[in-house]
Design a protein around this nucleic acid. Structure first.
Length: 557
RNA sequence: GGCAGCGUAGCUCAGUGGUAGAGCAGAGGACUCAUAAGCCUUUGGUCGUGGGUUCAAAUCCCUCCGCUGCCA
Protein backbone atom coordinates (compact mmCIF):
# COMPACT_ATOMS: atom_id res chain seq x y z
CA UNK A 1 0.00 0.00 0.00
CA UNK A 2 1.50 3.28 -1.10
CA UNK A 3 1.85 6.14 1.37
CA UNK A 4 2.18 9.86 0.86
CA UNK A 5 4.94 11.50 2.91
CA UNK A 6 5.73 15.20 3.32
CA UNK A 7 9.37 15.77 4.22
CA UNK A 8 9.87 19.29 5.49
CA UNK A 9 13.48 20.32 5.93
CA UNK A 10 14.82 23.23 7.99
CA UNK A 11 15.49 26.33 5.91
CA UNK A 12 19.21 27.15 5.86
CA UNK A 13 20.01 30.77 6.53
CA UNK A 14 21.49 32.37 3.44
CA UNK A 15 24.24 34.40 5.11
CA UNK A 16 27.08 31.92 4.87
CA UNK A 17 28.15 28.52 3.58
CA UNK A 18 26.88 25.24 4.98
CA UNK A 19 29.06 23.22 7.31
CA UNK A 20 29.03 19.60 8.43
CA UNK A 21 26.92 20.43 11.48
CA UNK A 22 24.10 21.52 9.20
CA UNK A 23 24.38 18.37 7.13
CA UNK A 24 24.50 15.90 10.01
CA UNK A 25 21.76 17.73 11.85
CA UNK A 26 19.16 18.57 9.26
CA UNK A 27 20.00 17.74 5.64
CA UNK A 28 21.37 14.22 5.37
CA UNK A 29 18.65 12.56 7.51
CA UNK A 30 15.70 13.74 5.38
CA UNK A 31 17.51 12.75 2.22
CA UNK A 32 18.05 9.23 3.54
CA UNK A 33 14.41 9.15 4.56
CA UNK A 34 13.21 10.44 1.18
CA UNK A 35 15.30 7.98 -0.84
CA UNK A 36 14.10 5.13 1.34
CA UNK A 37 10.45 6.05 0.85
CA UNK A 38 10.85 6.61 -2.86
CA UNK A 39 12.44 3.18 -3.20
CA UNK A 40 9.49 1.74 -1.32
CA UNK A 41 7.28 3.26 -4.00
CA UNK A 42 5.79 5.90 -1.71
CA UNK A 43 4.88 9.36 -2.91
CA UNK A 44 7.39 11.75 -1.36
CA UNK A 45 7.53 15.50 -1.39
CA UNK A 46 10.71 16.91 0.11
CA UNK A 47 10.82 20.69 0.27
CA UNK A 48 12.89 23.45 1.75
CA UNK A 49 14.60 26.64 0.65
CA UNK A 50 16.94 29.43 1.61
CA UNK A 51 15.84 31.68 4.42
CA UNK A 52 16.66 35.06 2.91
CA UNK A 53 15.33 37.47 5.51
CA UNK A 54 16.42 38.59 8.95
CA UNK A 55 19.03 40.98 10.26
CA UNK A 56 22.28 39.00 9.87
CA UNK A 57 21.95 39.07 6.09
CA UNK A 58 21.52 42.83 6.09
CA UNK A 59 24.62 43.19 8.27
CA UNK A 60 26.64 40.95 6.00
CA UNK A 61 25.42 42.88 2.97
CA UNK A 62 26.52 46.18 4.46
CA UNK A 63 29.92 44.76 5.38
CA UNK A 64 30.46 43.56 1.83
CA UNK A 65 28.90 46.56 0.10
CA UNK A 66 26.15 44.51 -1.48
CA UNK A 67 22.39 44.37 -1.19
CA UNK A 68 20.79 41.75 1.08
CA UNK A 69 19.24 40.23 -2.03
CA UNK A 70 22.65 39.78 -3.64
CA UNK A 71 24.01 38.02 -0.56
CA UNK A 72 20.97 35.77 -0.34
CA UNK A 73 21.11 34.88 -4.02
CA UNK A 74 24.83 34.15 -3.86
CA UNK A 75 24.40 31.64 -1.04
CA UNK A 76 21.24 30.22 -2.51
CA UNK A 77 23.19 29.29 -5.63
CA UNK A 78 25.91 27.78 -3.48
CA UNK A 79 23.33 25.72 -1.57
CA UNK A 80 21.86 24.38 -4.80
CA UNK A 81 25.33 23.42 -5.95
CA UNK A 82 26.06 21.67 -2.66
CA UNK A 83 22.78 19.71 -2.74
CA UNK A 84 23.57 18.48 -6.18
CA UNK A 85 27.11 17.41 -5.33
CA UNK A 86 26.19 15.81 -2.01
CA UNK A 87 23.09 14.21 -3.48
CA UNK A 88 20.50 15.89 -1.25
CA UNK A 89 17.44 15.22 -3.38
CA UNK A 90 14.96 18.00 -2.78
CA UNK A 91 11.81 17.99 -4.90
CA UNK A 92 11.89 21.73 -4.50
CA UNK A 93 14.46 24.00 -2.90
CA UNK A 94 13.12 27.51 -3.20
CA UNK A 95 13.62 30.71 -1.18
CA UNK A 96 11.61 32.92 1.15
CA UNK A 97 12.13 35.71 -1.34
CA UNK A 98 9.38 34.66 -3.76
CA UNK A 99 6.08 36.46 -4.35
CA UNK A 100 4.36 33.18 -3.62
CA UNK A 101 5.93 32.97 -0.18
CA UNK A 102 4.95 36.55 0.65
CA UNK A 103 1.40 35.83 -0.46
CA UNK A 104 1.05 32.67 1.64
CA UNK A 105 2.67 34.39 4.64
CA UNK A 106 0.26 37.31 4.41
CA UNK A 107 -2.69 34.96 4.14
CA UNK A 108 -1.69 33.25 7.37
CA UNK A 109 -0.95 36.55 9.08
CA UNK A 110 -4.30 38.06 8.11
CA UNK A 111 -6.28 34.94 8.93
CA UNK A 112 -4.74 34.69 12.41
CA UNK A 113 -5.33 38.43 12.89
CA UNK A 114 -8.93 38.02 11.83
CA UNK A 115 -9.44 35.23 14.33
CA UNK A 116 -7.93 37.18 17.19
CA UNK A 117 -4.73 35.13 17.45
CA UNK A 118 -2.65 38.12 16.45
CA UNK A 119 -2.98 41.48 18.26
CA UNK A 120 -1.33 44.88 18.28
CA UNK A 121 0.73 46.30 21.15
CA UNK A 122 3.25 49.07 21.76
CA UNK A 123 6.85 48.27 22.62
CA UNK A 124 9.97 50.30 23.29
CA UNK A 125 12.58 49.97 20.53
CA UNK A 126 16.06 51.35 20.03
CA UNK A 127 16.22 54.04 17.35
CA UNK A 128 19.35 55.51 15.82
CA UNK A 129 18.85 59.21 15.12
CA UNK A 130 21.87 59.32 12.81
CA UNK A 131 20.93 56.31 10.65
CA UNK A 132 17.29 57.30 11.07
CA UNK A 133 16.01 53.85 11.67
CA UNK A 134 15.08 51.36 14.37
CA UNK A 135 17.86 49.04 15.38
CA UNK A 136 17.26 45.37 15.91
CA UNK A 137 18.91 43.89 18.99
CA UNK A 138 21.97 42.70 17.12
CA UNK A 139 22.58 46.16 15.72
CA UNK A 140 23.21 47.61 19.15
CA UNK A 141 26.58 47.24 20.81
CA UNK A 142 27.75 48.28 24.23
CA UNK A 143 29.43 47.20 27.42
CA UNK A 144 28.16 44.01 28.99
CA UNK A 145 26.65 44.66 32.44
CA UNK A 146 27.69 41.18 33.56
CA UNK A 147 31.29 40.74 32.44
CA UNK A 148 32.31 44.23 31.34
CA UNK A 149 33.21 43.19 27.83
CA UNK A 150 32.97 46.15 25.48
CA UNK A 151 31.73 44.19 22.47
CA UNK A 152 28.39 42.90 23.77
CA UNK A 153 25.37 43.01 21.49
CA UNK A 154 21.79 43.86 22.32
CA UNK A 155 20.68 40.24 22.16
CA UNK A 156 23.59 38.65 23.98
CA UNK A 157 27.21 39.01 25.02
CA UNK A 158 29.52 36.77 23.02
CA UNK A 159 32.21 36.88 25.70
CA UNK A 160 30.20 35.63 28.66
CA UNK A 161 27.34 34.16 26.66
CA UNK A 162 24.63 35.90 28.64
CA UNK A 163 21.50 36.93 26.79
CA UNK A 164 20.09 40.36 27.51
CA UNK A 165 17.73 43.14 26.56
CA UNK A 166 19.19 46.12 24.70
CA UNK A 167 18.20 48.46 27.54
CA UNK A 168 20.57 46.62 29.90
CA UNK A 169 23.68 47.51 27.87
CA UNK A 170 25.99 50.12 29.39
CA UNK A 171 26.84 52.90 26.91
CA UNK A 172 24.78 51.46 24.07
CA UNK A 173 25.72 52.53 20.57
CA UNK A 174 24.61 51.90 17.03
CA UNK A 175 26.74 49.16 15.54
CA UNK A 176 27.09 51.02 12.25
CA UNK A 177 27.67 54.66 13.22
CA UNK A 178 28.36 54.45 17.00
CA UNK A 179 25.65 57.01 17.79
CA UNK A 180 23.84 56.51 21.09
CA UNK A 181 20.38 55.18 20.28
CA UNK A 182 17.16 56.54 21.70
CA UNK A 183 14.43 54.27 22.90
CA UNK A 184 11.14 55.00 21.17
CA UNK A 185 7.70 53.49 21.27
CA UNK A 186 6.67 51.45 18.26
CA UNK A 187 3.52 49.50 17.48
CA UNK A 188 3.88 45.81 16.72
CA UNK A 189 1.86 42.67 16.25
CA UNK A 190 2.05 39.75 18.64
CA UNK A 191 1.19 36.10 18.20
CA UNK A 192 -1.10 35.02 21.01
CA UNK A 193 0.72 31.81 21.92
CA UNK A 194 -0.98 31.79 25.31
CA UNK A 195 -4.24 30.96 23.56
CA UNK A 196 -2.78 27.63 22.36
CA UNK A 197 -1.11 26.50 25.56
CA UNK A 198 -3.66 23.86 26.58
CA UNK A 199 -4.34 22.57 23.09
CA UNK A 200 -0.61 22.23 22.43
CA UNK A 201 0.03 20.39 25.66
CA UNK A 202 -2.80 17.96 24.98
CA UNK A 203 -1.53 17.40 21.45
CA UNK A 204 2.11 16.95 22.43
CA UNK A 205 1.19 14.38 25.09
CA UNK A 206 -0.23 12.17 22.36
CA UNK A 207 3.02 12.20 20.36
CA UNK A 208 4.53 9.17 22.07
CA UNK A 209 6.43 8.23 18.92
CA UNK A 210 8.55 11.41 19.09
CA UNK A 211 12.15 11.18 20.13
CA UNK A 212 12.62 11.50 23.87
CA UNK A 213 14.73 14.64 23.64
CA UNK A 214 12.13 16.39 21.49
CA UNK A 215 9.28 15.33 23.74
CA UNK A 216 11.10 16.33 26.93
CA UNK A 217 12.15 19.72 25.67
CA UNK A 218 8.71 20.55 24.31
CA UNK A 219 6.77 19.38 27.35
CA UNK A 220 9.03 21.25 29.72
CA UNK A 221 8.71 24.41 27.68
CA UNK A 222 4.93 24.16 27.59
CA UNK A 223 4.66 23.43 31.29
CA UNK A 224 6.70 26.55 32.08
CA UNK A 225 3.99 28.56 30.35
CA UNK A 226 4.09 30.24 26.97
CA UNK A 227 4.48 33.96 26.35
CA UNK A 228 3.06 35.89 23.43
CA UNK A 229 5.73 36.86 20.95
CA UNK A 230 6.25 39.88 18.70
CA UNK A 231 6.04 38.88 15.06
CA UNK A 232 6.85 42.18 13.34
CA UNK A 233 9.98 44.33 13.30
CA UNK A 234 11.01 47.85 12.34
CA UNK A 235 13.29 46.88 9.50
CA UNK A 236 13.02 47.16 5.75
CA UNK A 237 14.20 43.71 4.67
CA UNK A 238 11.59 40.97 4.74
CA UNK A 239 7.94 40.33 4.00
CA UNK A 240 6.00 43.61 4.42
CA UNK A 241 3.26 43.67 7.05
CA UNK A 242 0.02 43.59 5.02
CA UNK A 243 -1.77 46.27 7.07
CA UNK A 244 -2.33 49.95 6.29
CA UNK A 245 -0.02 52.17 8.30
CA UNK A 246 2.51 49.36 8.76
CA UNK A 247 4.02 49.42 5.28
CA UNK A 248 7.47 50.18 6.69
CA UNK A 249 7.48 47.20 9.01
CA UNK A 250 8.29 43.60 8.20
CA UNK A 251 7.09 40.26 9.42
CA UNK A 252 9.65 38.89 11.83
CA UNK A 253 11.69 36.17 10.20
CA UNK A 254 10.90 33.38 12.68
CA UNK A 255 7.18 33.76 12.03
CA UNK A 256 7.48 33.86 8.30
CA UNK A 257 10.21 31.26 7.67
CA UNK A 258 8.24 28.27 9.03
CA UNK A 259 5.41 29.17 6.66
CA UNK A 260 7.89 28.25 3.94
CA UNK A 261 6.95 24.59 4.28
CA UNK A 262 3.44 25.40 3.12
CA UNK A 263 4.38 28.04 0.57
CA UNK A 264 6.99 25.74 -0.96
CA UNK A 265 4.41 23.00 -1.34
CA UNK A 266 2.11 25.47 -3.09
CA UNK A 267 4.93 26.57 -5.37
CA UNK A 268 5.70 22.94 -6.19
CA UNK A 269 2.00 22.32 -6.99
CA UNK A 270 1.83 25.35 -9.27
CA UNK A 271 4.87 24.32 -11.23
CA UNK A 272 3.57 20.76 -11.52
CA UNK A 273 0.60 22.13 -13.42
CA UNK A 274 -1.99 21.30 -10.78
CA UNK A 275 -2.31 24.25 -8.44
CA UNK A 276 -4.59 22.40 -6.03
CA UNK A 277 -2.22 19.50 -5.58
CA UNK A 278 -0.72 21.02 -2.41
CA UNK A 279 -3.88 19.95 -0.61
CA UNK A 280 -2.99 16.28 -1.02
CA UNK A 281 0.02 16.85 1.27
CA UNK A 282 -1.57 19.22 3.79
CA UNK A 283 -5.23 18.32 4.07
CA UNK A 284 -5.33 14.57 3.60
CA UNK A 285 -5.37 13.26 7.17
CA UNK A 286 -3.48 10.10 6.21
CA UNK A 287 -0.42 11.99 5.06
CA UNK A 288 2.41 12.02 7.56
CA UNK A 289 4.60 15.11 7.68
CA UNK A 290 8.12 14.89 9.04
CA UNK A 291 10.14 17.96 10.00
CA UNK A 292 13.89 17.44 9.94
CA UNK A 293 15.72 20.03 12.00
CA UNK A 294 18.57 20.57 14.43
CA UNK A 295 17.85 20.67 18.16
CA UNK A 296 18.19 24.45 18.26
CA UNK A 297 15.01 24.62 16.22
CA UNK A 298 12.72 22.35 18.23
CA UNK A 299 10.65 25.12 19.78
CA UNK A 300 9.67 26.54 16.41
CA UNK A 301 8.50 23.20 15.06
CA UNK A 302 6.78 21.62 18.05
CA UNK A 303 5.17 24.75 19.51
CA UNK A 304 5.11 27.85 17.34
CA UNK A 305 4.40 26.34 13.92
CA UNK A 306 1.79 23.91 15.33
CA UNK A 307 0.14 26.87 17.12
CA UNK A 308 0.01 28.78 13.83
CA UNK A 309 -1.45 25.74 12.09
CA UNK A 310 -4.04 25.23 14.82
CA UNK A 311 -5.04 28.88 14.55
CA UNK A 312 -5.30 28.73 10.80
CA UNK A 313 -7.12 25.41 10.79
CA UNK A 314 -7.63 22.63 8.27
CA UNK A 315 -3.92 21.90 7.79
CA UNK A 316 -2.02 18.86 9.03
CA UNK A 317 0.05 19.23 12.18
CA UNK A 318 3.53 17.69 12.20
CA UNK A 319 3.49 13.93 12.54
CA UNK A 320 7.09 13.73 13.68
CA UNK A 321 9.92 16.18 14.36
CA UNK A 322 13.05 14.02 14.41
CA UNK A 323 15.43 16.72 15.60
CA UNK A 324 19.08 15.78 15.76
CA UNK A 325 21.58 16.84 18.36
CA UNK A 326 24.80 18.65 17.47
CA UNK A 327 27.96 17.58 15.74
CA UNK A 328 31.18 18.70 17.36
CA UNK A 329 34.43 19.04 15.42
CA UNK A 330 37.56 17.50 16.92
CA UNK A 331 35.85 17.54 20.30
CA UNK A 332 34.94 21.20 20.24
CA UNK A 333 31.73 23.00 19.57
CA UNK A 334 31.35 24.47 16.10
CA UNK A 335 32.08 28.15 15.84
CA UNK A 336 31.55 30.01 12.60
CA UNK A 337 33.35 33.14 13.73
CA UNK A 338 36.42 31.20 14.84
CA UNK A 339 36.28 29.09 11.68
CA UNK A 340 36.02 25.97 13.81
CA UNK A 341 34.02 24.16 11.19
CA UNK A 342 34.36 21.97 8.15
CA UNK A 343 32.68 23.80 5.30
CA UNK A 344 30.69 21.75 2.87
CA UNK A 345 31.76 23.46 -0.39
CA UNK A 346 35.36 23.06 0.74
CA UNK A 347 34.87 19.37 1.52
CA UNK A 348 33.12 18.72 -1.77
CA UNK A 349 35.89 20.41 -3.73
CA UNK A 350 38.34 17.75 -2.52
CA UNK A 351 36.42 14.59 -1.60
CA UNK A 352 33.61 12.34 -2.78
CA UNK A 353 30.15 12.69 -1.28
CA UNK A 354 29.55 9.08 -0.19
CA UNK A 355 32.40 8.80 2.35
CA UNK A 356 31.01 11.85 4.15
CA UNK A 357 27.46 10.54 3.95
CA UNK A 358 28.75 7.26 5.37
CA UNK A 359 30.52 8.81 8.33
CA UNK A 360 27.70 11.19 9.19
CA UNK A 361 25.18 8.34 8.96
CA UNK A 362 27.01 5.79 11.04
CA UNK A 363 27.91 8.45 13.56
CA UNK A 364 24.73 10.49 13.35
CA UNK A 365 23.89 12.68 16.36
CA UNK A 366 20.46 11.13 16.74
CA UNK A 367 20.23 10.83 20.49
CA UNK A 368 23.38 12.58 21.67
CA UNK A 369 26.02 14.94 20.30
CA UNK A 370 28.63 13.12 18.28
CA UNK A 371 32.06 14.17 17.18
CA UNK A 372 33.56 14.58 13.73
CA UNK A 373 37.29 14.24 13.50
CA UNK A 374 39.41 13.86 10.40
CA UNK A 375 41.13 10.88 11.97
CA UNK A 376 37.79 9.16 12.40
CA UNK A 377 36.70 10.15 8.90
CA UNK A 378 39.83 8.66 7.29
CA UNK A 379 39.64 5.56 9.49
CA UNK A 380 35.99 4.86 8.78
CA UNK A 381 36.61 5.42 5.08
CA UNK A 382 39.65 3.14 4.94
CA UNK A 383 38.70 0.43 7.44
CA UNK A 384 34.97 0.21 6.92
CA UNK A 385 33.83 1.70 3.63
CA UNK A 386 36.82 0.59 1.58
CA UNK A 387 37.93 -2.53 3.46
CA UNK A 388 34.67 -4.11 4.58
CA UNK A 389 32.11 -3.06 2.00
CA UNK A 390 34.05 -1.78 -1.02
CA UNK A 391 36.47 -4.67 -0.93
CA UNK A 392 33.66 -7.21 -0.60
CA UNK A 393 32.09 -5.81 -3.76
CA UNK A 394 35.39 -5.68 -5.56
CA UNK A 395 36.64 -9.17 -4.63
CA UNK A 396 33.36 -10.75 -5.73
CA UNK A 397 32.93 -8.82 -8.95
CA UNK A 398 36.51 -9.08 -10.16
CA UNK A 399 36.65 -12.81 -9.47
CA UNK A 400 33.32 -13.51 -11.18
CA UNK A 401 34.21 -11.23 -14.05
CA UNK A 402 37.48 -13.03 -14.71
CA UNK A 403 36.46 -16.59 -14.02
CA UNK A 404 32.95 -16.71 -15.42
CA UNK A 405 33.25 -14.79 -18.68
CA UNK A 406 31.91 -11.57 -17.18
CA UNK A 407 28.50 -13.06 -16.47
CA UNK A 408 26.51 -13.92 -13.37
CA UNK A 409 27.17 -17.64 -12.76
CA UNK A 410 24.52 -20.32 -12.37
CA UNK A 411 24.20 -21.53 -8.78
CA UNK A 412 23.81 -25.13 -7.68
CA UNK A 413 22.10 -26.32 -4.50
CA UNK A 414 22.34 -23.98 -1.50
CA UNK A 415 23.69 -25.62 1.63
CA UNK A 416 22.57 -24.41 5.05
CA UNK A 417 25.33 -21.82 5.31
CA UNK A 418 24.41 -20.37 1.92
CA UNK A 419 20.75 -20.32 2.87
CA UNK A 420 21.62 -18.58 6.13
CA UNK A 421 23.50 -15.84 4.28
CA UNK A 422 20.65 -15.30 1.84
CA UNK A 423 18.30 -15.28 4.82
CA UNK A 424 20.43 -12.61 6.47
CA UNK A 425 20.22 -10.47 3.34
CA UNK A 426 16.42 -10.74 3.46
CA UNK A 427 16.37 -10.02 7.18
CA UNK A 428 18.53 -6.96 6.65
CA UNK A 429 16.06 -5.62 4.11
CA UNK A 430 13.22 -6.14 6.59
CA UNK A 431 15.05 -4.85 9.64
CA UNK A 432 16.25 -1.75 7.86
CA UNK A 433 12.77 -1.16 6.51
CA UNK A 434 11.50 -0.96 10.08
CA UNK A 435 14.41 1.15 11.32
CA UNK A 436 14.28 3.64 8.48
CA UNK A 437 10.52 3.99 8.82
CA UNK A 438 11.13 5.06 12.41
CA UNK A 439 14.03 7.35 11.45
CA UNK A 440 16.63 5.18 13.21
CA UNK A 441 19.33 5.88 10.67
CA UNK A 442 22.44 5.00 12.60
CA UNK A 443 21.21 1.59 13.64
CA UNK A 444 20.02 0.94 10.10
CA UNK A 445 23.35 1.54 8.40
CA UNK A 446 25.11 -0.48 11.10
CA UNK A 447 22.99 -3.50 10.26
CA UNK A 448 23.89 -3.12 6.56
CA UNK A 449 27.56 -3.16 7.48
CA UNK A 450 27.05 -6.33 9.54
CA UNK A 451 25.67 -8.02 6.47
CA UNK A 452 28.78 -7.07 4.50
CA UNK A 453 31.00 -8.37 7.27
CA UNK A 454 29.12 -11.65 7.51
CA UNK A 455 29.44 -12.12 3.76
CA UNK A 456 33.20 -11.62 3.94
CA UNK A 457 33.25 -14.48 6.47
CA UNK A 458 31.09 -16.62 4.22
CA UNK A 459 33.45 -16.12 1.29
CA UNK A 460 36.47 -17.01 3.38
CA UNK A 461 34.82 -20.20 4.48
CA UNK A 462 33.70 -21.16 0.97
CA UNK A 463 36.96 -20.04 -0.67
CA UNK A 464 35.62 -20.05 -4.23
CA UNK A 465 39.15 -19.23 -5.46
CA UNK A 466 40.16 -22.68 -4.20
CA UNK A 467 37.10 -24.67 -5.18
CA UNK A 468 37.14 -23.33 -8.71
CA UNK A 469 40.11 -25.58 -9.40
CA UNK A 470 38.30 -28.86 -8.72
CA UNK A 471 34.58 -28.03 -8.20
CA UNK A 472 33.48 -25.20 -10.47
CA UNK A 473 29.85 -25.59 -9.41
CA UNK A 474 30.63 -25.06 -5.72
CA UNK A 475 32.61 -21.95 -6.61
CA UNK A 476 29.77 -20.62 -8.76
CA UNK A 477 27.23 -21.22 -5.99
CA UNK A 478 29.23 -19.34 -3.36
CA UNK A 479 29.77 -16.43 -5.73
CA UNK A 480 26.13 -16.37 -6.69
CA UNK A 481 25.16 -16.13 -3.00
CA UNK A 482 27.63 -13.24 -2.65
CA UNK A 483 26.08 -11.55 -5.67
CA UNK A 484 22.64 -11.85 -4.09
CA UNK A 485 24.05 -10.08 -1.04
CA UNK A 486 25.63 -7.38 -3.21
CA UNK A 487 22.30 -6.65 -4.79
CA UNK A 488 20.70 -6.46 -1.33
CA UNK A 489 23.47 -4.13 -0.18
CA UNK A 490 23.05 -1.89 -3.19
CA UNK A 491 19.39 -1.47 -2.23
CA UNK A 492 19.69 -1.03 1.53
CA UNK A 493 22.69 1.29 1.25
CA UNK A 494 21.13 3.36 -1.52
CA UNK A 495 19.48 5.86 0.85
CA UNK A 496 22.83 6.42 2.56
CA UNK A 497 25.29 6.05 -0.32
CA UNK A 498 23.29 6.85 -3.45
CA UNK A 499 26.22 7.37 -5.80
CA UNK A 500 28.07 4.14 -5.08
CA UNK A 501 24.84 2.13 -4.86
CA UNK A 502 23.83 3.24 -8.33
CA UNK A 503 27.31 2.30 -9.56
CA UNK A 504 27.10 -1.12 -7.97
CA UNK A 505 23.67 -1.58 -9.51
CA UNK A 506 25.25 -1.01 -12.90
CA UNK A 507 28.27 -3.23 -12.22
CA UNK A 508 25.74 -5.98 -11.48
CA UNK A 509 24.55 -5.54 -15.03
CA UNK A 510 21.36 -3.56 -14.41
CA UNK A 511 20.29 -0.55 -16.40
CA UNK A 512 18.20 2.35 -15.13
CA UNK A 513 17.85 3.78 -11.65
CA UNK A 514 18.17 1.60 -8.58
CA UNK A 515 15.51 3.74 -6.89
CA UNK A 516 12.94 2.34 -9.31
CA UNK A 517 13.67 -1.29 -8.40
CA UNK A 518 11.85 -1.40 -5.08
CA UNK A 519 12.85 -2.26 -1.52
CA UNK A 520 13.43 -5.95 -2.14
CA UNK A 521 16.01 -8.48 -3.28
CA UNK A 522 16.73 -7.76 -6.91
CA UNK A 523 19.26 -10.48 -7.65
CA UNK A 524 20.62 -10.43 -11.16
CA UNK A 525 19.58 -13.53 -13.15
CA UNK A 526 22.29 -16.07 -14.04
CA UNK A 527 23.85 -15.18 -17.34
CA UNK A 528 23.37 -11.44 -16.86
CA UNK A 529 26.40 -9.62 -18.22
CA UNK A 530 28.37 -7.64 -15.63
CA UNK A 531 30.08 -4.34 -16.24
CA UNK A 532 33.84 -4.35 -15.91
CA UNK A 533 34.24 -3.63 -12.17
CA UNK A 534 36.15 -0.74 -10.65
CA UNK A 535 36.63 -0.10 -6.91
CA UNK A 536 33.66 1.76 -5.44
CA UNK A 537 35.74 3.77 -2.97
CA UNK A 538 39.33 4.92 -2.63
CA UNK A 539 41.60 4.72 0.35
CA UNK A 540 42.61 8.06 1.79
CA UNK A 541 46.16 8.86 2.84
CA UNK A 542 46.55 9.09 6.61
CA UNK A 543 48.67 12.16 6.13
CA UNK A 544 45.45 13.99 5.34
CA UNK A 545 44.55 13.86 9.03
CA UNK A 546 47.17 16.44 9.96
CA UNK A 547 46.74 18.41 6.80
CA UNK A 548 42.98 18.79 7.26
CA UNK A 549 43.07 19.26 11.01
CA UNK A 550 45.51 22.11 10.67
CA UNK A 551 43.08 24.00 8.44
CA UNK A 552 40.66 24.30 11.35
CA UNK A 553 40.68 27.64 13.06
CA UNK A 554 42.43 29.38 10.17
CA UNK A 555 41.13 32.69 9.04
CA UNK A 556 38.55 32.00 6.40
CA UNK A 557 39.61 33.05 2.94
C1' G B 1 21.27 29.57 40.70
C1' G B 2 17.15 26.41 38.02
C1' C B 3 16.30 22.42 34.49
C1' A B 4 18.05 18.50 31.39
C1' G B 5 21.68 15.15 29.80
C1' C B 6 26.23 12.55 30.05
C1' G B 7 30.30 9.68 32.75
C1' U B 8 31.09 1.67 30.25
C1' A B 9 38.08 -1.44 27.45
C1' G B 10 43.97 2.86 25.47
C1' C B 11 40.31 5.55 21.63
C1' U B 12 35.06 6.08 19.52
C1' C B 13 30.75 4.29 21.34
C1' A B 14 26.35 0.30 21.84
C1' G B 15 23.87 -1.82 25.76
C1' U B 16 17.38 0.61 30.58
C1' G B 17 16.49 -5.50 35.70
C1' G B 18 18.89 -11.70 34.28
C1' U B 19 26.55 -14.65 32.83
C1' A B 20 29.86 -7.00 30.81
C1' G B 21 29.66 -5.90 24.27
C1' A B 22 31.32 -3.95 19.02
C1' G B 23 34.75 -1.37 15.94
C1' C B 24 39.66 0.67 15.99
C1' A B 25 44.45 0.39 18.34
C1' G B 26 48.01 -3.91 20.65
C1' A B 27 49.61 -9.45 20.29
C1' G B 28 49.56 -14.22 17.61
C1' G B 29 47.90 -17.30 13.39
C1' A B 30 46.05 -19.58 8.86
C1' C B 31 44.84 -18.01 3.91
C1' U B 32 45.73 -15.34 -0.83
C1' C B 33 39.96 -14.03 -4.89
C1' A B 34 40.43 -8.72 -3.56
C1' U B 35 42.26 -1.58 -3.03
C1' A B 36 48.80 -5.35 1.77
C1' A B 37 41.93 -5.71 1.65
C1' G B 38 39.33 -10.07 4.13
C1' C B 39 39.15 -14.19 7.98
C1' C B 40 40.39 -16.70 12.86
C1' U B 41 42.38 -16.45 17.91
C1' U B 42 43.82 -13.23 21.81
C1' U B 43 45.30 -9.09 25.64
C1' G B 44 42.37 -5.35 28.03
C1' G B 45 36.79 -2.96 32.10
C1' U B 46 35.60 -3.39 40.55
C1' C B 47 30.27 0.07 33.86
C1' G B 48 32.57 8.10 37.76
C1' U B 49 31.86 7.79 43.75
C1' G B 50 29.24 6.16 48.12
C1' G B 51 24.75 4.22 49.70
C1' G B 52 19.64 2.07 48.90
C1' U B 53 15.56 -1.13 46.49
C1' U B 54 15.66 -6.37 44.50
C1' C B 55 16.56 -13.36 44.39
C1' A B 56 19.26 -10.33 40.68
C1' A B 57 21.48 -3.35 39.13
C1' A B 58 25.78 -0.65 33.88
C1' U B 59 20.29 -0.50 33.92
C1' C B 60 15.61 1.73 39.11
C1' C B 61 16.08 5.43 43.64
C1' C B 62 19.21 8.88 46.69
C1' U B 63 24.29 11.45 47.86
C1' C B 64 28.63 13.34 46.06
C1' C B 65 32.45 14.32 42.09
C1' G B 66 33.47 15.65 36.96
C1' C B 67 31.83 17.34 32.06
C1' U B 68 28.11 19.43 28.52
C1' G B 69 23.83 21.95 26.95
C1' C B 70 19.46 25.07 27.74
C1' C B 71 17.27 28.84 30.78
C1' A B 72 17.52 33.02 34.53
Amino acid sequence: MSERILIAVAWPYADGPLHLGHIAGAYLPPDIFARYHRTKGNEVLMVSGSDQHGTPITIKAEQEGKTPGEIATQYHQQFLDSWQKLGISFDLFTTTGTANHAEVSCDIFLTLLDRGYIYKATVSQAYCPHCRRFLSDRYIEGTCPYCGSSGARGDQCDDCGKPMNPVELIDPRCRLCATTPQFKDSEHFFLKLTAFQDRLLAWVKQQTHWRQNVLNFTTRYLEQGLKDRAITRDINWGVPVPIKGFENKRIYVWFEAVIGYLSATKEWAKSSGNEEKWRSFWQDKDVKSYYFIGKDNILFHTIIWPAMLMGYGDLNLPYDVPANEFLTIEGRRLSTSRNWAVWLPDYLSRYDPDPLRYLLSINMPETADTDFSWREFIRRNNDELVATYGNLVHRVLTFVYRSFDGCVPMAGEFDSHSQAVIGMAEDTLNTMDGLLYRCRFREAIRSAMSLAQETNRYLDEKSPWKTIKQDRQASATALYVAIIVLSALSTVLYPFLPFSSQKLHEYLGFKGRIEDCGWKLNSPPPGQRLLSPEPLFSKLDEGLVDEETSRLGDIRC
